[in-house]
Amino acid sequence: MKRKNSKKKRVIPGFGLSLGITVTLMGIIVIIPLCSLVIFSARLSPSDFIATVTRPRVLSSYQVSFSTAFIAAVVDAVMGMILAWVLVRYDFPGKSVMNGMIELPFALPTAVAGISLTHLTTANGWVGSIFHRFGIEIAYTRLGITIALIFIGIPFVVRSVQPVLEKFDAQYEEAAHILGASRRQTVFRVILPEIAPSLIAGFTMSFARGLGEYGSVVFIAGNMPYETEIAPLMIMSELQEFDYASATSIALVMLAASFVILFVNAALQSRASKIVTGIA
């Protein structure tokens, strides 16, 4: 009974009311504030904009943010894949507890995670002291930022891959095995192509989230200019000096970056689904 763009009477009542409430709230919460960002950006002079976003300190903050978020997302993709596999394919004691724990980074406030990870990884923390003996410092370095971002991003990958793996029929693997594929060939030729779209989606989400993350990172980073200063912190410090023009300029670059990431993800998704369905 779906009629596209129909002006005829809709069968289920409540269209006007639900659309009205949806659009009104969306307008107040999302659309008006985003419009004011656009309006404010239009007032920035292009030369000031370029001067702000290419300041060496800002450039290095982008570099810190992108490199740490990227490495963290790669680690999350690998570990998330293993976790999803273990949770779907194996039965073992404590499995449901393990499954329930995955969402902990969603449920735990980022500031709490931040101070706890920082204290654990300083030179005299429980974990940090072990690494300190080998000359590896975690807290107040880029390694620390990466660890905080791994923490934040892990549920995105697991919760993206898990449902796909659950639906994936073990018969394909058995068929591959019977046809003489090695275990390795089965993993790389049969399983990975099938879950690739969901893995990419999870990777993208944790990468995008990592770029914008503030609460868990700001404590562990140490915030040394040119070394461990992340881009969201640059925006924050401009805001604290009431320099809205600079803050907006840096934010626009970050927003553009996250839209590019989402766009690339969408393109990869549609390509992957074409490969799987065989429709060119």
Partner: peptide, 18 residues
């Protein structure tokens, strides 16, 4: 879904600008 992809700091910024 937009608020998911916007950094919390940028979310704060747009309200300051508004």
């Amino acid at each position: 879904d937009l608020p998911f992809t916007v950094s919390p700091i940028i979310a704060g910024l747009i309200y300051v600008l508004t």
